[in-house]
Design a protein around this nucleic acid. Structure first.
Length: 420
DNA sequence: TCTGGGGTCCTAGGACCC
DNA sequence: TCTGGGGTCCTAGGACCC
């Protein structure tokens, strides 16, 4: 099978500059929520030494001197552009599987000229959305990722498209590529592998699979086999489909020491997660609530969580919230400067596929209808238009987003005006 | 002053079964 | 001295991804 991995270059930065193209030749970064650290950089920013995950406070002087353009993450905008990229790929590829906000695996069944397909698709995305994509082509997902890495590394020579199906080319790249560039090999595994004398992708590929299985796990073994062209990862398993857990959490705009704003923040997280839960048609059997002080602060470190088994599977925001509130009251400690909190929904049942519990409390009347009305109003009028009283939508826990751009594609008022 | 958010998978080890 | 063998299920923690 021929697999193409299509991946947007510096996605968040490219989206921002596609609406402000006069910034394309300047160093541009996008920060995480709360403007905490760097999550995306364009090539110019990389060139002046901006590191991934670098704390934003270290870059303030560059921003003030106008040497660096910084944007707060505008996640709604990125998601909306991502949807458009994915729609193009769906129309172009026989099968495509969205893997993350900015990349997709495409199965090129029956495409006679994959390289030509890649160049055509690349041009189409550039023309319609103003975004640059890189394409890696090979026979396995892991090799397609590595081909994509090569395409970006040698952008000028490759036109950001690399076809790695030929074993001679493949082995040449495997010899060159450091093992940490292989998909699935992170920092810890790189250290561990290095200790065993495995430093390049080629050394990993040619290691004895039994040896890898013994020293690591089945994933490392699979990765090594994939590098030699033996498909072990099914790309149709990636991406879409129901989540097995739903997390909503945030670092706060300010430290919180009292219980009330903490409860309000958690109410907001529960509302967000419950809406996602209903959207995928699941019911949660378990909710976890956690809160912690900043691990970087000088004060007493504190981190706690409570896991609450729900009496019956539910997607009602009120039931989920009352469980979370109980857990939060239990873990709250006066005097702790809380920096972050969140909730995790898990152990899902499928709606309509549940055996009732004779001893469970009677379900709330009209719960489904009420939740459906809330969801439809919020879908039409914007998130938080209608909400539980505890979810105040404002408070000291709200994110800082000092450098936020307008929602260009999701609000009529913010449609970009002609300027160039 | 200041350090993201949201996911997945695997394994070891404990509890428990006969 | 010495304490079975084989199995399932669950969970915490660690690793990875973007």
């Amino acid at each position: 099978m021929t697999i193409a991995l299509v991946d947007c270059n510096s996605f968040y930065c490219s989206v921002e500059t596609s609406f402000q193209p006069w910034l394309r030749d300047r160093p541009v970064c996008v920060s995480s929520s709360n403007d905490g650290c760097v999550v995306a950089r364009n090539d110019h920013a990389k060139k002046i030494g901006i590191k991934m995950s670098q704390p934003v406070f270290e870059l303030r002087h560059l921003v003030e001197q106008n040497k660096l353009i910084l944007f707060s993450s505008n996640y709604e905008l990125y998601q909306s552009l991502s949807n458009r990229v994915m729609a193009i790929l769906e129309s172009q590829a026989p099968r495509s599987f969205c893997y993350s906000i900015d990349e997709s695996f495409c199965a090129l069944d029956g495409i006679a000229d994959p390289l030509g397909w890649a160049q055509e698709t690349q041009a189409m995305i550039k023309q319609r959305l103003g975004l640059d994509v890189g394409v890696g082509i090979s026979n396995t997902a892991t090799l397609a990722k590595l081909a994509n890495w090569a395409a970006k590394k040698w952008k000028a020579q490759t036109g950001c498209v690399v076809d790695l199906r030929d074993p001679v080319r493949r082995d040449r790249l495997l010899n060159y590529a450091p093992v940490n560039e292989v998909w699935g090999i992170g920092r810890r595994l790189t250290e561990h592998l290095g200790g065993l004398g495995i430093n390049t992708a080629w050394q990993l590929a040619s290691a004895d699979p039994k040896f890898l299985r013994r020293h690591f796990n089945v994933n490392v073994e699979r990765t090594a086999r994939e590098l030699l062209g033996v498909a072990c990862i099914d790309i149709s398993d990636t991406g879409t489909g129901r989540k097995q857990m739903i997390i909503s959490s945030r670092s706060f705009g300010q430290r919180i020491t009292t219980l009330e704003p903490l409860l309000e923040a958690v109410a907001s997280f529960v509302s967000i997660a419950a809406a996602k839960l209903r959207l995928q048609g699941s019911l949660a059997n378990c909710i976890q609530v956690f809160a912690r002080a900043s691990p970087f602060a000088s004060g007493q470190p504190y981190s706690a969580s409570r896991i609450i088994a729900l009496p019956a599977p539910t997607d009602d925001t009120r039931d989920l919230l009352s469980a979370a509130v109980g857990g939060l009251r239990d873990l709250y400690r006066p005097g702790v400067e809380f920096a972050k909190a969140g909730i995790v929904l898990s152990q899902f049942s499928q709606r309509g596929a549940i055996t009732g519990d004779l001893f469970a409390p009677a379900p709330r009347r009209n719960s489904d209808a009420l939740m459906a009305v809330m969801d439809s109003i919020n879908a039409r009028q914007g998130r938080g238009s209608i909400r539980l009283a505890r979810d105040t939508a404002t408070g000291p826990w709200k994110m800082h987003r000092q450098f936020l751009t307008p929602p260009y594609t999701t609000s009529w008022d913010a449609l970009p005006k002609a300027r160039c």
